[in-house]
């Protein structure tokens, strides 16, 4: 059983659980407005939540899906997905686009 706990996959899992609990806590309705000093901009909070999510995604890809040990091409495709989707989500969050078409 001890060997299980020392496994890198288990360490990865432990980090993932911690990150989820952190997101859970960050996402709760903290009464930000009443704390008179240093009101945190919710946009930084949301950015943090998205970044945590995509770090978690990359850990899942690397350690659970074992892409870390796979050929370079697969590693690059997976990382490209993580980077591209994360970047577009954050871009659209900070700089919303106007309505371009109702069909979108």
């Amino acid at each position: 059983m001890l060997t299980l706990l020392r496994n890198p996959v288990t360490v990865a899992w432990f980090l993932l659980m911690l990150a989820t609990c952190l997101s859970w806590w960050l996402g709760l309705d903290h009464d930000l407005s009443s704390a008179s000093q240093a009101v945190v901009d919710v946009r930084y909070l949301s950015t943090g939540l998205i970044l945590i999510a995509f770090i978690k995604v990359r850990i899942v890809i690397r350690y659970f899906m074992e892409v870390g040990k796979s050929p370079l091409a697969l590693r690059l495709i997976c990382d490209a997905w993580v980077l591209a989707v994360c970047a577009v989500i954050l871009y659209l969050y900070w700089f919303p686009l106007p309505l371009v078409a109702t069909s979108l």
Binding site: L49, A53, K56, M65
Partner: peptide
């Protein structure tokens, strides 16, 4: 197993997107 991990990772993104981000 890889398929099941993918199901997990899609939910990891859906969670903050739908439930958390302000």
């Amino acid at each position: 197993a890889s398929y099941w991990h993918m199901v997990d990772l899609l939910w990891i993104v859906l969670f903050p997107l739908l439930y958390l981000m302000k």
